[in-house]
Design a protein around this nucleic acid. Sequence first.
DNA 1: TGCAATGCTTGTG
DNA 2: CACAAGCATTGCA
Length: 185
Amino acid sequence: MSISWVTVPTPLPSGPLRLAVTEQGVAAVSYHGDAIGGVPGRVGIPECVDESRAGLVRARLAEYFEGRRTELGLPIDWRFTTGPHRTVLQTLTAQAGYGQTLTYGELGARSGVFEDFTDGGWTAARTVGKMMGANPLCLLVPCHRVVASDGLGGFGGGPRGLEIKRWLLTLEGVLPPTLDWNGPG
DNA sequence: TGCAATGCTTGTG
DNA sequence: CACAAGCATTGCA
């Protein structure tokens, strides 16, 4: 099984996106170029030389960022996720459509991996937040559509990462455009 | 507005 | 492989 990097230009405040692709699909996505949490052996992964595969990924993402595509429709390789983590991410992918948001607690409830909600959902919400932060499939698994019950919530990478979350939600029409909005529309 | 409750992921030894 | 630390939250007073 081979794995390789594809670099995709984006209008995101973070700049280009880096994706790790395999024969199965996209295995990981990084906003920060070379750092992906939870991806072992990420150093030494070669650039993708299969232009047909890289081209498809770039084309789909380009359309998405132009607002012409609401579903990426890219195959996902779940190899870097396991157990409850994978279940939650797959639940999110299946249930949070374009322009829709749900809360951490809600996702925890829907995923079915948390059985005890007698604490008011505290455990589920906190755990889901942790899972999102450890999500190697940002963007493909729409972790930016998961928000706190009383606001935007957080995002990996701190304040810098939050800009990305805001940008994506603006693209999808969840948030109103800001003055520095450089996306479509 | 401020506080207390917990489980999963990740980085070391 | 085992252990310890850190959180992308929530609901109630």
